[in-house]
Simulated assay, not measured.
Amino acid sequence: MTVGLGRLARSIEEVGTNLGAMQAIERPDYRTYEPHDGDVFITSWAKSGTTMTQQMFHQLRMLAATGEADMDFDDISRMTPWEDTAQQNNFDMNVPQKASPRGFKSHREYERLEPGMRYIVTLRDPHETYHSFHRFFSGYLFEPGTIPMEEFFPLWMMGGPGGCDYYTHLLSWYARRNEPDTLLVTYRWMVKNKEAMIRKMAGFLGIDADDAMIDRVDALTTREFMYEHKDKFDDAMIKQGMAEMLGLHDLESSKVKAEGSDAKQVPPAIAAQIDALWAERVAPVTGHKDFASLAAEVDALQG
């Protein structure tokens, strides 16, 4: 049964129409998350390194459990289920996972996640997330060219399915930067120090990773490798559901791009809005006037 507009949206309001229509359909196979001791949430904000972190996590646990890497999946979010989209995807959050520990994806702040678990979070410059978010949603939630970056701000503030706004997320996880149950790094630090990040994640998960395992995971998480296999990192389950429910085909958006996002592409008026909210909400709590200052503190914690 086709619901919604029967096509991609061409305005912010039409995005809401399609998303609302999909949420109204019953999902007989959907089951909510049931916590187990030792569960891990990969819960970066949208477009902040979640996909790379999911791949890093999954390959580490598979190599530790089986001695082999695993690319036998259609969607990395089937390996590390995404609770915020599970109902839309008619997905059982408690299906057996291929290895331990169990891992789950989220874009939420700490206060809306199951307490007493473990959390891996990467923080990214808000201007970069804005450009990345707009590139991703174009051809996915709206027709390319119909919602320019100048009009995209309300969608950026949504933070993705089930998420929260950028500032709520950042403040929540910044407050937990010294907690032993939380591995908090910046996205840029992770990319520039990937081997160190893999070692840090392995230790956080209780995995004894030798140099060969580190090298293998490093190779499996390069931009080139993930772009070559981008169909596995492009929300295949969501896209299939959207195609069926909205009558869409050939959704074009890709999470893994050949080149990274560029904060300089954000229109000056939008950049000013982002900075004004930082000054209003983040600076008084953290003492950091901008993301670069906050990132320097978080990066220094990595040793």
Rank of each mutant, 00 (worst) to 15 (best):
V3C: 11
L8W: 11
R10T: 14
E14Q: 08
E14Y: 06
G16I: 13
I25T: 11
D29K: 15
Y30S: 02
T32L: 14
E34N: 05
W45L: 03
T50L: 05
T53K: 06
T53Y: 04
F57T: 01
F57G: 00
H58E: 07
L60H: 08
R61D: 01
R61F: 05
G67W: 03
D70G: 06
M71T: 13
R78V: 15
W82R: 07
T85K: 08
A86W: 03
F91T: 03
N94R: 11
A99P: 02
R102L: 02
S106V: 08
S106I: 10
R108F: 04
Y110V: 09
P115A: 09
P115C: 07
G116M: 03
R118F: 09
I120H: 01
I120R: 02
V121D: 01
V121A: 08
P126E: 02
H134V: 12
Y140K: 12
F142L: 07
F152C: 07
F153D: 04
P154E: 02
G159K: 02
D165G: 04
H169W: 05
L170M: 09
L171D: 00
S172F: 03
R176G: 05
N178L: 14
E179V: 11
D181R: 13
Y187L: 13
W189Y: 09
W189E: 00
M190F: 09
K192C: 14
E195G: 10
R199E: 01
G206T: 03
I207C: 01
D211A: 14
R216E: 05
V217M: 03
D218W: 15
L220G: 00
T221I: 11
T222P: 00
E228T: 11
F233S: 06
F233E: 02
D235K: 15
G241V: 07
G241H: 12
A243V: 13
E244L: 15
M245E: 04
L246P: 06
L248T: 03
L251S: 02
S254V: 15
K255F: 15
G260N: 03
G260H: 05
S261V: 07
S261G: 06
S261P: 10
I270N: 01
A272V: 05
Q273A: 08
I274F: 08
A276Y: 04
W278A: 03
A279C: 05
A279L: 12
E280P: 03
E280K: 13
R281I: 05
A283N: 01
P284A: 08
V298P: 00
A300R: 13
Q302I: 11
G303L: 13
